[in-house]
Design a protein around this nucleic acid. Structure first.
Lengths: 226, 226
DNA sequence: ATATAAAATTAGATCGGTCTAATTTATTAT
DNA sequence: ATAATAAATTAGACCGATCTAATTTTATAT
């Protein structure tokens, strides 16, 4: 009789896994040491060390000087942490009354609490939410992440409209800007005009007066065309 | 212009502080290295090392080979952690539906989440509870711990009655035993008889049939005489 | 009051996670 | 195709938290 070494992941490993997962999602399959070092806020040799440890735990597959990617096991852990992060964000906003720009750092800590029953009960308590307060989809208990049908507002032609379902820029300053402009998740946004000269967008928001925003903003809003 | 070095406490330090606080509460003012080593589940030299670090941060006052105790600052941190621990326990039981015997280990992790607004909002959300699910009092936001008027059931004479307000034994097995016996927080318990021979207690529980329990049990129940 | 036992501390090592400096490997430009 | 540049790794060190083994300090018993 033997154990299939449980060997649970450390706080730090979990943060690496999450970062690698997000990099793989956006920048293609394999990730570079330097990129990861940058997003983790550490120096390259620290990453190399950590990669070796994680490769030993079969969380990533790693070929010296050739980049690396998550194994299935690593992906599972990463998705689970993302699930917890987003569920806690919902809790902080819906139940405790935090604003959507305040919850990220607190959830960064809460996501590491080790207890499956806790996560499952939290999920149920929140009513099995499909998305976090920024519109990011929440993986289900089996690690299945519903794929989003939303696109960047900037990809829509003038005259088209979409329902605002999420942001691609999660910075506090951008979230505050949206609050100030009165643009909220769920709003229907119609593109009245795109200025050819500087790509400025004039938007129509139902029941609000038209807003003029930069291309950068239109490029940070996720919508479902309607 | 200079900073008053913020130097926040580590996860491990917080656990030491909590343990020292509890030892000081029950075993008088100064604590011994060996005692602390035992409750922390580490060996004595580890404690000595940690004491030096914490003394450097002015969290404890420490005289080599003479025992040690918390400074005011150390006491503040300890009480704050106890506050968080107990608030999270209330959340886990009242909101998520955990049983009172399941919440301790999860709260041991949650108590270290660093965010005062989080704790304050949680407190408000829970309705400013005065006690955790085991009847332990919750310090308020200023670190004031309401002193309890409760006594051990075993200190009451036969014929007297008390309201069951807390336990002095927090073990899962004892909590399960109470569940099995149908003894719950808030119950009024009357001592019908104390057997001289073996100190067995016969208890009357309102609306339930009499229960016979050992002295050990009577010595683990906290009541307010009425 | 001194020997013995118990408690506490020091010395030296390990582990995870990080660093800097030096070196090796891979990529790019001419 | 080779030199120059960029990226990655190795080597060696540090810090916090722990360990074991050895030593010192304090308490206890006769």
């Amino acid at each position: 009789m033997y154990y299939l070494s449980r060997m649970s992941t450390s706080y730090t490993e979990e943060n690496y896994l999450k970062a690698i997962y997000k990099l793989q999602e956006s920048n293609g399959e394999t990730v570079a040491t330097s990129t990861l070092a940058q997003v983790m806020g550490v120096h390259a040799p620290s990453v190399t060390d950590m990669l070796k440890r994680m490769a030993g735990k079969k969380l990533i597959s790693y070929q010296k000087s050739k980049g690396f990617k998550l194994t299935e096991k690593g992906k599972q852990v990463a998705v689970d942490i993302i699930r917890r992060h987003r569920l806690w964000e919902v809790f902080l906003v819906d139940k405790l009354g935090f604003r959507w720009d305040e919850v990220h750092t607190i959830a960064e800590e809460l996501e590491h609490i080790q207890s499956s029953p806790l996560v499952d009960k939290l999920d149920a308590y929140l009513g099995y939410p499909k998305a976090d307060p920024h519109g990011d989809p929440i993986p289900d208990a089996n690690g299945v992440l519903p794929k989003s049908r939303s696109v960047l507002l900037s990809s829509l032609k003038a005259g088209k409209a979409g329902k605002f379902t999420g942001v691609s820029d999660h910075s506090v300053s951008f979230l505050n800007y949206l609050d100030k402009m009165g643009i909220s998740l769920g709003d229907t946004i119609k593109i009245k005009h795109v200025e050819d000269f500087d790509k400025t967008y004039t938007l129509e928001l139902k029941g609000k007066k038209p807003a003029v925003v930069s291309h950068k903003v239109a490029n940070s809003l996720l919508v479902i065309e309607q």
